[in-house]
Design a protein around this nucleic acid. Sequence first.
DNA 1: GGCATGATTTCGGTGTGCCGAAATCACAGC
DNA 2: GCTGTGATTTCGGCACACCGAAATCATGCC
Lengths: 217, 217
Amino acid sequence: MQSTAAEDYVKAIYHHTEWQPEPITPSQLASRLGLANSTVTEMVKKLAAAGLVRHRPYGAVELTDDGRALAVRQVRRHRVVETWLVERHGYDWDEVHDEAEILEHALSDRLLDSIARSLGDPERDPHGDPIPAADGTVRRPDAVLLADAEVGHAGAVVRISDADPAMLRFLAGAGVALDARLTVLGQKPYSGSIQVRSGSTTIDVGPDVAQAIWLAA
Amino acid sequence: MQSTAAEDYVKAIYHHTEWQPEPITPSQLASRLGLANSTVTEMVKKLAAAGLVRHRPYGAVELTDDGRALAVRQVRRHRVVETWLVERHGYDWDEVHDEAEILEHALSDRLLDSIARSLGDPERDPHGDPIPAADGTVRRPDAVLLADAEVGHAGAVVRISDADPAMLRFLAGAGVALDARLTVLGQKPYSGSIQVRSGSTTIDVGPDVAQAIWLAA
DNA sequence: GGCATGATTTCGGTGTGCCGAAATCACAGC
DNA sequence: GCTGTGATTTCGGCACACCGAAATCATGCC
């Protein structure tokens, strides 16, 4: 059991728990993968038989150590490829995902490690997501979601969610990029938006943006 | 009909006619692909329905213009990838094939062209096989099989078959590489071997080697 | 404790690409 | 013209990954 499908499943499960720890339900998994619930049920059963996943009927799905190791390997591949596409082949942030999704299943370990080396073995991808090392080690920066940061908190942008390409472009235009230093000035009561200082300018960010940016703790 | 399987079939058919023009039979195709005859029969039927191949029952298989275009595209991908693996990732000639076989199905046109550009849009791969251009143009050098070359013929090595990795290593050890200048000194009667001068040394090559080296005409 | 509701699973079915065994064909030799 | 032989095709079947519809389950609400 090491098909590209299995790799996609464990990666999706891992991804779900990467920034918050509740286990994923089968239907969440199905919608994330764009598959029918019945398909996921069947595949989860196979993954469980292969020892990659724990699952009792009608319950949530969790990775075993083996499953997590496979997922981390897959995440490494995906993020190395994304970084390579952006840094060496002129792709934009919002163009890399589909290509990486295919390539991550096609590269040998040897080639992937060679590509990573040629990039200087980066520890994070263009969004700030940590790139696991070849041995499975993940170095995750101490980070606070902007939405959860206290007033007065100041820190560099450590991660920006890549869920919404339009937002990425907006933020780039506003000068908010990886490593940009932000200071939380305050919340506007009842507006749901947060005031933030970036360099000498002040910007208001809505709740969707505040959920997409992590600052160094 | 653009599956990786279809790509493999048309590439194998193309490959068969690349250096000699008899059409390939289903069983030859099956053994080249490592598949059962029955599988090939079925797939050929689908390829014919898709307009990639011409085939009447119990006859040989030939590419249509569409099929040839797809095959050439695939050959380009394969050879660009091989060149890239050798030149940028330290692979040896005899190590690239399997990796390229997988990658050629996984790279987008955009990425492949970017890789080719980064290599200077090479016109031949490490074996000397011509790399088709992105528009499908193939520039094949005028070449003579060493076995067919007349006594006194002199020319650079233009292509070395990659069928036998051990032979590749032997030739590399003997100083016979791409662009090495060889002169045909003569045939040893009844021995089947040919005397060749390479620089200041003279070597005897057997019929298998003489079938694997092409000289500039 | 019964029941509605939404999530989960089961079930029958599909498409692709593969296989071995059996049937069929083409062609050469007589 | 017949026939044997090897190549080709047909046939039933399998594994994988997917689907929709129907059945089943868990949970919260009354």
